[in-house]
Amino acid sequence: MQLDLRFWDGMFYDGPRPTSIGTRPVLGFRLNWYSDGALVSLSNLGYTWNPGQNLARCRSFPTKHHAPGPACTCGLYACHDLVQLLRDVASCAASRPTEQLIIAGVAGRGVVRVHERGWRAQYARIVALCNELPVLVFRQEGGRILVGHELIRQEAAPSLGEKYGVPVVPLNDLFNAMRSVGDFAEEMP
């Protein structure tokens, strides 16, 4: 008989035993929607981030197991690096063109499911916000189409910085700002 891991996840099966990798939360990057003065996750369920520590909860039906489940998609998401994240900006922005995207630096801890390009954590908190968003720009010059990018100022970022109690900085300064607010592992050990 084959177990449906999405159902039994966390009840009789917790996945591989986690390897302890120390005490320093790991840094990552994520994209969020700005909505009602808060950061909201990109997923359909639209989790609203709290200031300080956030605890992942699985809202899959019918089972509510401990997040992040090994065979589920639940957990608090982040990308390992900013370049990977920026690849997603254009498609996200196109999906909801009237809404503002905000790039955030986060620190994850607890049980962390490490993936190829990012992680899903049990706990995570926002540690810094970016007040710029790169967008693709197309321009025609003598019959040739040139593609570039420009940085668009995200007007909501300063008030979000106050709400979450974190620094708000330009894109180029984001990683340094994240490092400066705590003792973190800069990449997954």
Binding site: P25, P70, Y77, D88, H115
Partner: peptide
Amino acid sequence: MNIGRPVRTVEIVEEP
């Protein structure tokens, strides 16, 4: 966000 396939599971326990 597309974070790819799962690779491993780790645990980070912050010092109290």
